[in-house]
Design a protein around this nucleic acid. Structure first.
Length: 833
RNA sequence: GCCGAAGUGGCGGAAUGGUAGACGCGACGGUCUCAAAAACCGUUGGGGGCAACCCUGUGCCGGUUCGACUCCGGCCUUCGGCACCA
């Protein structure tokens, strides 16, 4: 067989070994693992610490694409890695199963949302299983199952009882043609995405969660091991503003006795620069204060604002608009009379819905004043101000007070405090903190969601459904018609009920909850997914604690992650959990691209993993996704790139299965090198995986196999060292490629299962090199490399460096002014003049 | 507009302030083959030189340092987030 020529290559005689068949290997082990319950997770194992690993649960859209794999497979690697490090690891999976697409499918295709969803779950579960993750399927959850949403309703009732759930009027996007509320994403340039009708704003009774009560606590995220930008985004989203709420007197009190307008300002130092007031068009005082001669114009403006969507209104490049109400207010600080305007740049939902107009020191006020010829009075003089009119508002905080009466001459930072104190002392207002974040609107006029467990009785008013009557079940015989009306509204059997208080007739709330409510507590349901006494078992929740490592897409940086934090804080305040944060560590993976663009159905560039899994195996798909680049960076899917991984997988298979009979029984000349390489690889792979650097962990293993092949061919490594190298390579690779390593583990004579083995440890002494390359730089340029003992002394290194002929070519005839030795780096830097 | 992240070969990417381009893809040359594919071996930032080697090179311009992809200042570009929040 082998002749002189063959020794020149690393070709393994393939006739002797069975080639790798990924399909049969994966199938065999997936069946075995499931039959053995290898991934069932007990709540406690003596002598092991619990570790809760979680990846965001998928929406039941239908098919798993490579984006799902990219999110889940590397998470699985970490979970498996932790397991091999000796932790009792919980790594569950479930389905975010409520939501609009199911209902749209029902309207369009006549298939019931439940059937559509269940079929998708069935398909996705199968696809997830083919990925070979260590999910504990006995803990699977489905947010659209009554056994789950019963508890979502239960949470609603706890919030309601705490006063954290309330009903109020809110503006929503309303399509008058579809006769329904639209989410912001469904409004395209002010028009309905489906029928292209112009969308208007409508006031409707809606349910809210009082998340703003927790604004201050949610702001405190310093101790979380999350990406800094996510924490910053949450802080910006919450948008804490310190300022002063100031009362302005109404010159003419209204018929119902209101005699003031309250405004929130972060700049009390500019109070003497107020030359007008602005109310939001929706402000309750508008209709009352508008004078008869201004009424027609004001009402027209209000009406116009009503038809403008929130999104349109928030376009910052829109020229300022507004109308005068005819009414005046009095600035109590100056006694001045200022006109009251309405303008849609004042937001009804922020602060008090009214602002004081200080055109010299606020750009929006400046623009309005410029357009309508209102006075622009400078009260904070910019440094070096020449007294001339400003070309734009001066927003700086380093000016001094002018035209501010007794406050004149103060630096405005001081004026800020003095004027605010004065306002408070006079009883004209108080210091206040305002948040940009609004309460969470959870009402959805949809069928396919968790019904809000509330009913309305003519006599007893709004009544919560008693807990023992949960769940309020979605009627399956609802009708799905393209009217836009919720099917629950037209379902008499659902709608009509009796009041738990008086037994009289009552109607049910027909709105369902935002699906973000479902996903705000699912991570706790996994600790006791079949519990029918409580949403979760408190003792088990204590055992698992908060999620140790959460992974998912960056698109959830604010909403989902903020809502979940709110829920856990609420649970803690109810005494149901010990911890106040749901996720201790967070990691955001990047996005997989295809043809350099984001995958989307409309572009038709969605990459389905199924064909690659069938052809190359789940292990190769997993490895390729991890090798594309750093996990947080995402990457571009390439058919060519995956072949490199497939090739390497085959090479590794050949190495592990080649009979080692021809190798020396002991004392191979390359044993020391091979052992060192092995320990270096263990060290690199271990530290890389802990930092989510799967790409470099894999590269390290590739380097090892690149060294193993020639050593095997040259028979320079002994049988025991070879066997040990193969064994440890398999262990290191096991979290990433669970099927093929299990197969090779068995074929190399090891006991089932590789996934129950401890991770190999490295020995720094064995990983250490004994010969190193001394690099010599002259004036920063590398001029020489000398082989030296690794433990060379500083003096020897410098001496050898300076003695080198090549170095002397650069130093002879020059003054050597400095010689630097860098110990750990085997580097000498020579400076010459 | 504001906040943030990132710019390295033909491509994906690697480098605790210390040998830039690991590992992989692709390309080129070769082995095997009647031939091709697969597999394997070799070369592969650019420029120069017969060669040993030399010059140059991490978006652009400066700075710190014996030494900068890395740190600092200022630009440019791309991508994310927020966007009239008083």
């Amino acid at each position: 067989m082998d002749d002189e020529g063959a020794a020149m290559t690393t070709t393994t005689p393939r006739t002797e070994i069975e080639p790798y068949d990924p399909g049969s290997v994966a199938q065999r082990w997936q069946q075995r693992w499931e039959a053995d319950g290898l991934y069932r997770t007990p709540d406690h194992v003596e002598g092991q610490q619990n570790w809760y690993a979680l990846t965001m649960l998928p929406y039941t859209s239908g098919d798993l694409h490579v984006g799902h794999w990219f999110a889940m497979a590397p998470s699985d690697v970490l979970a498996r890695f932790k397991r091999m490090q000796g932790y009792n690891v919980l790594f569950p999976m479930g389905f975010d199963a409520f939501g609009l697409p199911a209902e749209n499918a029902a309207i369009a295709g006549g298939v019931h949302p439940k059937d559509w969803t269940d079929a998708n779950i069935e398909r996705m579960r199968g696809q997830l299983k083919r990925m070979g993750a260590m999910f504990d399927w006995e803990r699977e959850i489905n947010s659209s199952d009554p056994s789950y949403y019963r508890w979502t309703q239960w949470w609603f009732l706890q919030l309601y009882r705490q006063g954290l759930a309330y009903r109020a009027e809110a503006a929503v996007n309303w399509c008058p043609s579809c006769n329904t509320v639209l989410a912001n994403e469904q409004v395209i340039d002010g028009h309905c995405e489906r029928c292209h009708t112009e969308v208007e704003q409508r006031q409707m009774e809606q349910w809210f969660f009082r998340i703003t009560d927790y604004a201050e606590q949610l702001l405190d995220n310093d101790q979380l091991e999350w990406p800094e930008h996510v924490k910053r985004m949450q802080r910006n989203w919450i948008g804490r503003s310190e300022g002063t709420e100031v009362s302005f007197a109404l010159e003419t009190p209204t018929a119902d006795g209101s005699d003031e307008i309250r405004v929130f300002t972060t700049r009390p130092d500019t109070l003497c620069g107020v030359t007008f007031m602005v109310l939001a068009p929706e402000h309750p005082l508008v209709s009352q204060i508008t004078t008869e001669e201004r009424r027609v114009e004001v009402e027209a403006y209000v009406e116009q604002a009503r038809h403008t969507t929130e999104i349109e209104r928030q376009a910052t490049d829109r020229p300022k608009t507004g109308v005068f109400t005819g009414a005046y207010s009095v600035n109590r600080l100056t006694g001045e009379r200022v006109p009251i305007w309405i303008a849609d740049y004042a937001l009804a939902t922020y602060g008090t819905g009214a602002v004081m107009g200080v055109p010299a020191h606020d750009q929006r006020d400046f623009e309005l004043a410029g357009k309508f010829g209102l006075e622009i009075r400078v009260v904070v003089a910019p440094p070096g101000w020449d007294g001339k009119p400003l070309s734009e508002a001066y927003l700086g905080r380093d000016g001094s007070q002018v035209s501010s009466g007794r406050f004149d001459g103060m630096p405005n930072a001081e004026g800020y405090e003095a004027i605010a104190d004065h306002i408070v002392a006079q009883g004209w207002g108080e210091r206040r903190v305002t948040y940009r974040m609004r309460d969470w609107l959870i009402s959805r006029q949809r069928y396919w969601g968790t019904p809000i467990p509330i009913l309305y009785c003519d006599d007893c008013g709004t009544q919560p459904v008693p807990e023992d009557q949960l769940p309020v079940v979605l009627p399956e015989d609802a009708e799905f018609k393209p009217t836009g009306d919720s099917p629950l509204k037209r379902h008499a059997g659902f709608l009509n009920t009796t009041c738990p208080q008086c037994g009289g007739p009552a109607t049910r709330e027909t709105d369902t909850m935002d699906t973000f409510v479902d996903s705000s507590w699912y991570f706790l349901r996994y600790v006791s997914p079949h519990d029918d006494e409580a949403p979760f078992d408190a003792e088990k929740a204590k055992l698992w604690g908060p999620v140790d490592q959460y992974t998912g897409g960056a698109e959830h940086a604010v909403m989902h992650l903020l809502y979940a934090r709110f829920f856990v804080k609420m649970m803690r305040d109810l005494g149901l959990v010990d911890h106040g944060e749901p996720f201790l560590r967070l990691f955001n993976q990047g996005i997989v691209l295809s043809e350099h663009t984001k995958m989307s159905k409309s572009r038709g560039n969605v990459v389905a993993p199924d064909a690659y899994v069938s052809e190359l195996g789940a292990d190769v798909v997993r490895l390729y996704l991890m090798f594309m680049g750093p996990w947080e960076g995402g990457g571009d899917w390439s058919d060519a790139g995956i072949n490199g991984i497939a090739r390497w997988m085959n090479r590794a298979w050949d190495l592990a299965t080649s009979p080692a009979d021809a190798l020396p029984a002991a004392d191979g000349p390359a044993d020391r090198d091979m052992t060192r390489r092995m320990h270096q690889t263990i060290r690199r792979v271990t530290t890389d995986i802990e930092r989510f650097k799967y790409n470099t962990a894999l590269a390290a293993m590739m380097e090892l196999t690149n060294d193993m092949a020639p050593a095997f061919e040259a028979r320079s490594v002994s049988q025991p060292v070879w066997a040990e190298t193969v064994r440890r390579l398999l262990l290191l690779l096991a979290p990433m490629a669970p099927h093929v390593t299990e197969e090779l583990w068995e074929r190399t004579g090891n006991p089932y299962s590789i996934h129950a083995q401890p991770l190999p440890a490295w020995d720094d002494a064995l990983a250490a090199v004994d010969e190193a390359t001394l690099v010599v730089q002259v004036n920063g340029k590398v001029r020489e490399r000398i082989a030296v003992p690794a433990d060379i002394s500083e003096a020897d290194a410098k001496q050898q460096a300076l003695a080198s002929e090549r170095v002397r070519a650069y130093t002879d005839g020059h003054d050597v002014t400095k010689v630097v030795f860098v110990p750990g780096r085997h580097l000498v830097s020579v400076v010459v003049k």
